[in-house]
Design a protein around this nucleic acid. Structure first.
Length: 473
RNA sequence: GGCGCUAUCGUCUAGCCUGGUCUAGGACAUCAGAUUCUCAAUCUGGUAACACGGGUUCGAAUCCCGUUAGCGCUACCA
């Protein structure tokens, strides 16, 4: 049974890169009928916040990434929040110390940063020199007396390491060139990420760790830790990173790429998922628009690319637009109404809005474009281009239109055609010259949906009001 | 600085593993046209790429080496 996890730290809102990692894990699990586990990595007490944890879970669910085990969905390997697992980490750290695989290190933070500064100056790799390993009893006692609290460091004894990455293939590391003994427990007693992640993944029986490429260089440490604790390491797959439109790395502080922001701008969750999946993955043929179901059936980790990609908002809009167009009118109205409501752009259920909405299905890419289009429903019209209705020709067209009204049968589907046919003989204008003044009088805008579609929806009273109002200008 | 990863149109990518079918395919964007009362949507067509230099080979986008560039790690953040 394949078990994967998404393990964010609740220090900000989820962004495009985070959600992509989550998505790939989820799809991989679904494709293989495995389990998708959510774990909150909140060992950094300074930066972790409950508010972010809630927000991240909410965003995950919005995207449709429901976890099989995790916060709120208890499973056999919980708890799924690291701050509640501190005793477990302590136990494993103690075991490593007892077995001589880790040790208390009385070297202070000041000393290590000084070490780093010097190394940089002398153009050497800024690597911890393991000096804490060899302190004698006297040295330790004197440091203790000064009130120095020790960290726990993991001993690196066998520095050559080879691994096979699911996405990158064989990777060889020489830890001697990289790091010295590294900290697994901070001076304040808290475990570090490296320790916690290994203990949790092992205990939670994670079989495949799919995470960002920024962790590739950490992987040898993790494999060593696994081995030292007597666990079989999982398979690792490192996803290339996504960059912003300017090529800059994504950050949790970058609001423009947060999942929150995508929700607010009215993207469909499955449209977003489709686009994100295409960043670094493709089904191999030329298909690009994929339904949620198809994504789950088609996703293969082998087909995930190795190079970094840049987020392109234009293409996201296009993909989302395709998903919107694929909706039925009813689904579209349902999604749109829900969006308008949560955005506070619509206070109560509105019959008229529900009727017009389908008119826009073919020309919006995001729901946040709806508000502007919906302005045509406002009876209190402000004319974009008054000239069209105050000109002599404009007035004659509007007058003719008003005269035509009593002859109309509004129960007919073709009421608009009858309307136009009644006007045509009375005015000289035709084509654009006829329709633009009409459009202006009825909607106040130069551009908008087909008059034929909105005319019957506006109805007799509204059309009459609008025309008369236009004539008064 | 050290180590690691990556390198196909402006962007996302297919092709690379298993060299020839690649005068490199698709999509977004862009440009031109069609359609339409307008905008949009839609349709048609165009411009546009194998980072560079060496090898291996009859033949390289594909394999090897080097260079360059970008990114990541090098924390008592995750």
């Amino acid at each position: 049974m394949i078990r994967v996890r998404f393990a964010p730290s609740p220090t900000g809102y989820l962004h495009l890169g985070n959600i992509r990692t989550a998505l790939f894990n989820y799809l991989f699990a679904k494709r293989t009928q495995g389990k998708f586990i959510l774990r909150m990595e909140d060992t950094d007490r300074e930066r972790s916040r409950q508010e972010y944890m809630d927000a991240q879970e909410e965003d995950l669910l919005w995207m449709g990434l429901r976890w099989d085990e995790g916060p709120g969905v208890e499973g056999p390997y919980g708890p799924y929040q690291q701050s509640q697992r501190l005793d477990i980490y302590r136990e494993y750290i103690q075991k490593l110390i007892d077995e001589g695989k880790a040790y208390h290190c009385y070297v202070t933070e000041d000393e290590t940063s000084e070490m780093k500064r010097l190394a940089k100056l002398e153009r050497r790799p800024p690597r911890f020199d393991n000096r804490g390993r060899t302190f004698d009893q006297k040295e330790i006692a004197s440091r203790k007396a000064k009130g120095i609290k020790p960290t726990v460091r993991f001993k690196i004894d066998n520095p050559m390491l080879e691994m096979v990455d699911l996405i990158r293939g064989k990777v060889i590391f020489n830890l001697d060139d990289m790091v010295g003994d590294f900290v697994i427990q901070r001076a304040d007693g808290a475990p570090t990420f490296h320790l916690a992640v290994c203990v949790d993944d092992a205990l939670m029986k994670i079989t495949h760790v799919i995470r960002g490429e920024d962790h590739l260089s950490n992987t040898p440490k993790h494999i060593l830790l696994y081995q030292a604790m007597g666990f079989e390491p999982p398979q690792f797959g490192h996803l290339s990173l996504v960059h912003g439109p300017g090529g800059e790395p994504l950050s949790k502080r970058l609001e423009s790429v947060s999942v929150r922001e995508f929700r607010n701008r009215g993207y469909l969750p499955h449209g977003l998922a489709n686009y994100i999946a295409l960043l670094g993955w493709s089904p191999g043929d030329n298909r690009e628009i994929l339904k949620w179901q198809e994504l789950q059936q088609l996703f293969e980790i082998d087909r995930v690319g190795r190079s970094a990609s840049i987020f392109d908002p234009h293409k996201l809009d296009w993909v989302n637009g395709q998903h919107i167009r694929a909706l039925s009118d009813n689904e579209f109205v349902r999604h749109a109404m829900a969006y308008l409501k949560t955005q506070g752009q619509l206070s109560e259920p509105n019959e008229l809005v529900q009727q017009v909405l389908p008119v826009f299905k073919d020309n919006v890419e995001r729901f946040d474009q709806l508000a502007e289009r919906l302005q045509i429903l406002d009876e209190n019209i402000e004319y974009e281009n008054k000239a069209l209705i105050v000109s002599e020709e404009g007035r004659s067209i509007v007058s003719a239109a008003i005269e035509a009204l009593p002859t109309l049968d509004w129960s007919e589907v073709s009421v608009y055609d009858a309307f136009v046919n009644a006007i045509k003989p009375k005015v000289k204008a035709k084509g654009k010259n006829l329709f633009m003044p009409l459009r202006m009088a009825l909607t106040g805008k130069e551009h908008g949906p087909e008059l034929k579609r909105i005319f019957p929806i506006l109805g007799m009273t509204s059309v009459k009001n609008r025309l008369e109002r236009a004539l008064q200008k």
